[in-house]
Amino acid sequence: MAANGASVFAPWDDPDQTPLIRFENVTKRFGDFTAIDNLSLDIYAREFFALLGPSGCGKTTMMRMLAGFETPTEGKIYIGGQDMGPIAPNQRPVNMMFQSYALFPHLSVYENIAFGLRRDGQPKDKIEARVEDMLRMVRLQKFAKRKPHQISGGQRQRVALARSLAKEPKLLLLDEPLGALDAKLREDTQFELMDIQEKTGTTFVIVTHDQEEAMTVASRIAVMDEGRIMQVATPDRIYEFPENAYVADFIGDVNLIEGTATPSGEDEVTITWAENQQPIRAKTQRKLATGQKVFYAIRPEKVGISKEEPTDVVNKAKGRILDIAYLGNLSTYHVQMPTGEIIKAQSANTRRIARRPFTWEEEVWVSWNGTGGSVLED
């Protein structure tokens, strides 16, 4: 959010910043089922924050508690320093945008956006000015008189967004807002969302199971599993420095190699992982015991592949190509070791492929440096 030497937007790193939203030891149970398990989390003003995880992990329950549709079994939720416990949903400084958009089919685009302002009894001239601002922001001035069924899915999504922002909430909750759009439109709309969020300065909290979407739009991501937060960090930290095997495996593509550790120097470890393969040498700040079970996570794009044995790398292994995934801009090679383990290596297709550099069943070497991966305890 900053350029030309301006300070980076990172209020979570500033001890003097007060969070806009605070979950304080929140637990939510439905009968015997614990949907949220003693969860604490801070979200700051102007953040685009993503709750990311598989179905049933608790992310939608967290959003519904923020909106006031569910009540915590234990713990408290604060918005702007105020305990939301006694505050009714319609009294909270929050608006919510649903995956279905929930537009009124009988009202025009203009009237859909104006609906909440009219219900609040705002003066006609203020309503008109605000709706015009919203139409301009989402670039739908030409469609103001049309009904929802007369515009595209992407345009309906922008109408729902404009209606949600018209009342200038402190916080906008987005529940899988792009799930109904096709892949290309979803990608375009992600950047529109980011642009609108930055222009309005509204805090956005998005619920999604789409890792790529969260990585694209969010200032920070909370990766969730079974009602607990596994890691909260910026997208680059989540990807490059996962805190555990679950996060490494959930975000993006990864080689997750199980082995046993032997500390071999300051911030160094060797990992025994397969019969007749040289141990993996890695950097880590974790304090590990000799013989301790660990996972080594290395992204496929950080693994090189070659026909000749490399001489200038710390880690290497020989295998044969089991499978090739051609993705246009990238090719991913699944290389099987003699003992059955598979290591994925990825290379960019910077030139048009007239003939593949490697083919199925071919013997190759995979290699990577000592700082390319992460040593994880579980």
Rank of each mutant, 00 (worst) to 15 (best):
Ala3Pro: 04
Asn4Arg: 13
Phe9Cys: 01
Pro11Ser: 07
Asp13His: 10
Asp14Pro: 03
Val26Ile: 02
Val26His: 01
Lys28Trp: 00
Lys28Ala: 00
Lys28Phe: 01
Phe30Lys: 00
Phe30Ala: 01
Asp37Tyr: 05
Leu39Gln: 12
Ser40Ala: 07
Ser40Cys: 08
Ser40Pro: 12
Leu41Asn: 11
Ile43Thr: 05
Glu47Met: 00
Gly56Asp: 06
Met65Pro: 02
Pro72Leu: 04
Lys76Gly: 02
Met84Leu: 13
Met97Ile: 04
Leu103Arg: 14
Phe104Arg: 03
His106Trp: 14
Val109His: 06
Glu111Asp: 15
Ala114Ser: 13
Arg118Trp: 04
Gly121Asp: 02
Glu132Ser: 11
Arg139Ala: 13
Leu140Arg: 09
Arg146Ile: 12
Leu161Ile: 02
Ala162Gly: 13
Leu165Met: 10
Lys170Ala: 08
Lys170Glu: 14
Leu173Phe: 07
Asp175Gln: 02
Leu181Glu: 13
Ala183Leu: 07
Lys184Arg: 15
Arg186Gly: 03
Glu187His: 14
Thr189Met: 15
Gln190Ile: 12
Phe191Glu: 02
Leu193Trp: 11
Ile196Glu: 10
Glu198Lys: 06
Phe204Val: 00
Val207Leu: 03
His209Pro: 15
Glu212Leu: 02
Ala214Ser: 09
Ala218Phe: 13
Arg220Tyr: 08
Met224Leu: 15
Gly227Phe: 08
Met230Phe: 01
Val232Glu: 06
Thr234Asp: 08
Pro235Gln: 05
Asp236His: 10
Ile238Thr: 08
Tyr239Gln: 09
Tyr239Arg: 08
Tyr239Gly: 10
Tyr239Ser: 10
Phe241Ala: 06
Asp249Thr: 13
Phe250Pro: 03
Ile251Gly: 12
Thr262Ala: 11
Lys287Ala: 14
Leu288Met: 10
Lys293Ile: 05
Ala297Thr: 00
Pro300Ala: 06
Ile305Pro: 04
Val314Thr: 15
Ala317Thr: 09
Gly328Asp: 09
Asn329Gln: 11
Thr332Glu: 14
His334Asn: 05
Pro338Arg: 11
Thr339Gln: 14
Glu341Pro: 08
Lys344Pro: 09
Ala345Lys: 04
Ser347Gln: 15
Ile353Asp: 12
Arg356Gly: 03
Glu361Asp: 15
Trp365Gln: 02
Val366Glu: 08
Ser367His: 15
Asn369Pro: 07
Leu376Asn: 09
